[in-house]
Write a protein that binds this DNA or RNA. Structure first.
Length: 605
DNA sequence: TTAGGGTTAG
């Protein structure tokens, strides 16, 4: 009855302005009214009133109106999935649109498993999925992550012949990427006939999330070669992340330039990524300038800045920024405190570190995690307080992990405390450490103590576990390209000229009073062999390459995977004065800025 | 008839 009256009303409305309409078009006007009612809603109260009105007008029986009702309730920011479900359950006609809507609602609500259940119900009811079904469903699989379900879904897509839909393909790339299946992820991308920027974005983000940084940069090049280059902040953030990890400052700078030219008003994520890139690529000054100019800083921006200062050895400055953060009313979290403790650690601020550690719990209610204990062990260990570090480990409310023992082992090595080193190593081996470096450090400590039998025993132990030493490498950026050198490298195309340069460097170093610190070569070989091995360390090769291929006076930046040895440290200090170059070296934990014969770490690292 | 993919940082 109600529906008839509505039909009548709309018919009258139309017939005033237009020639008589067919009953079908008049019915559409009922739908239009429904849509306009729903569009006006901005909260659940208003929505409920519109819902009542729609029921009263008899529009709920119309599939289009009911569907829009569900969609509005399920997908609006102010909506409610419970309410949407109750409407959904009352509907007579359930097709793919209705199911797709419910799935989207569940995914939006982070209720991903419910989205998969909805898909299952869809199949059970014999409703055929369409091309709109899969992007949502794959997003759910990606988020869980549920690669097996994702692959089943992929099979359904092939069965239904939807594999050429670009939206479906992009979702597949993203799903496989997030599930760590980079091979299939690339295969889907390769098979695409037509790609969009989102396809590249999904692919680059997938590589970035798996730490495949070099591939990220290669793909960015491929993307621009295929003419897909446009200002896409999200892609550039992934690329900046790659630059950060690889230490590719020049490329990072060009991304910055591109952003300045093409994007007006950088958002806080892009700005923070830029700051992190500058800080971790060695350009502390530039990172600091950008940070100071930021209009709005959040907790993450402060966190990045504090950790950056820590890496550069500016502990006190890091603590100052931390105070500023608190003054701004920003509440620190556990990760900010990791940065703060690291800042203390790298600058040898033992008392300050202890104060912060206590303050974290007392003032901010943050229970120390194993990571914080790790920072404290590192702080004490670096400062030579090995016994205190060991005491702290024993007093922890949780079981110490390999990271902690490794930190103690490393400190024992630096401070020549073989007894503590043996304790740490024993615990590491008990935890079934699969890191060859743990065996190598202990073996090196025995070597330093001339205990060659123990050296042999440790090495045999290591080999019997099938472990081999990860080679140390140094990366150096020349003309926006990263060049990689390993120790005693002979594989670089310009190896010959590098060794020639090395010879010249050593000749000049002799005049500065340099003599190779052969105690750093921990093998039972003769002095000449030791000298030979020292001179071929990857950092020296990288510096030689940079001296040949960069203009006089320009800075040299190196990224290494391991801590540098004392000899490389002394050597680099002298090179900085002889060749008048600023040399920045980033290892796994921190930066060393070599200038005029001195290092920013003041030999504390 | 309705709608969908890539949202990035410590």
């Amino acid at each position: 009855m109600i529906r008839t009256s509505v039909l009548h009303q709309t018919h009258v409305l139309v017939s005033r302005e237009d020639p008589p309409q067919s009953p079908e078009l008049s019915f559409k006007l009922g739908e239009k009214e429904c849509v306009s009612l729903l569009k006006k809603c901005s909260n659940m109260e208003e929505f409920k009133q519109s819902h009542a009105r729609i029921l009263k007008l008899g529009l709920f029986g119309d599939s289009f109106c009911a569907s829009n009702l569900v969609a509005t309730c399920a997908l609006s920011d102010w909506g409610s999935m419970d309410y949407a479900c109750s409407i959904f359950r009352q509907m007579d006609e359930l097709g793919s649109f209705q199911f797709n809507t419910m799935m989207r609602g569940h995914v939006k609500d982070m209720n991903t498993e419910e989205a998969l259940i909805t898909y299952k119900e869809m199949a059970e009811r014999g409703v055929k999925p369409d091309n709109f079904t899969y992007p949502t469903l794959l997003k759910a699989c990606a988020r869980l992550p549920a690669v097996e379900e994702g692959m089943q879904v992929h099979a359904h897509i092939l069965k239904l012949g939807l594999e050429n839909d670009v939206f479906v393909q992009n979702s597949l790339i993203s799903m496989y990427g997030k599930c760590g299946e980079i091979g299939v992820c690339c295969a889907v991308f390769e098979q695409m006939n037509e790609r969009s920027v989102a396809s590249w974005s999904a692919l680059i983000t997938a590589h970035a999330s798996l730490g495949m940084w070099s591939d990220c940069l290669r793909l960015l090049g491929d993307m621009s070669n295929e003419g897909y280059w446009r200002a896409e902040e999200s892609i550039l953030v992934s690329v900046l992340s790659a630059c950060t990890h690889l230490g590719a400052l020049d490329l990072g700078r060009s991304v910055h330039g591109f952003l300045l030219r093409n994007v007006s008003g950088l958002n806080v994520i892009v700005e923070t990524s830029l700051i992190e890139m500058y800080l971790k690529c060695g350009s502390l000054y530039k990172g600091m300038c950008l940070f100071q100019k930021m209009a709005k800083k959040n907790k993450l921006s402060y966190s990045v800045m504090i950790s950056g200062l820590a890496m550069h050895g500016y502990g006190r400055e890091g603590l100052r920024i931390f105070t500023e953060m608190l003054e701004q009313g920003l509440e620190p979290d556990d990760i900010v405190y990791v940065g703060v403790l690291n800042a203390c650690s790298h600058a040898g601020l033992v008392q300050e570190g202890l104060q912060c550690f206590n303050r974290m719990k007392l003032e901010h209610g943050i229970e120390p995690t194993i990571q914080h204990y790790g920072c404290m062990v590192d702080l004490m260990g670096r400062a030579g307080k090995i016994d205190e570090a060991l005491e702290l480990i024993k007093s922890m409310p949780m079981e110490p992990n390999d990271v902690l023992w490794r930190s103690l082992l490393s400190a024992s090595k630096v401070h020549n405390n073989l007894q503590a080193g043996e304790i740490a190593a024993k615990q590491l081996f008990k935890l079934d450490s699969q890191k060859a470096s743990d065996y190598v450090v202990l073996s090196n400590m025995y070597a330093q103590a001339q205990r060659w039998e123990d050296v042999a025993k440790t090495r045999t132990n290591m080999f019997s576990k099938g472990l081999s030493q990860r080679p140390g490498f140094s990366l150096v950026e020349v003309k926006r390209k990263m060049h990689r050198f390993v120790s005693q490298d002979a594989g670089h195309p310009q190896s010959e000229s590098v060794y020639e340069m090395l010879y010249q460097m050593e000749w000049q170093l002799k005049f500065e009073g340099y003599s190779p610190d052969t105690t750093q070569v921990l093998c039972d070989v003769d002095e000449e062999e030791k000298k030979q091995r020292l001179s071929g360390h990857s950092q020296k090769l990288a510096i030689a390459y940079a001296l040949i291929h960069t203009s006089q006076g320009s800075p040299i930046r190196i990224v290494r995977n391991l801590r540098m040895c004392n000899d490389c440290h002394t050597y680099t200090k002298l090179i900085s004065i002889i060749f008048d170059r600023e040399i920045t070296v980033r290892d796994r934990h921190r930066f060393h800025h070599f200038k005029d014969g001195a290092c920013s770490c003041r030999d504390y690292w």
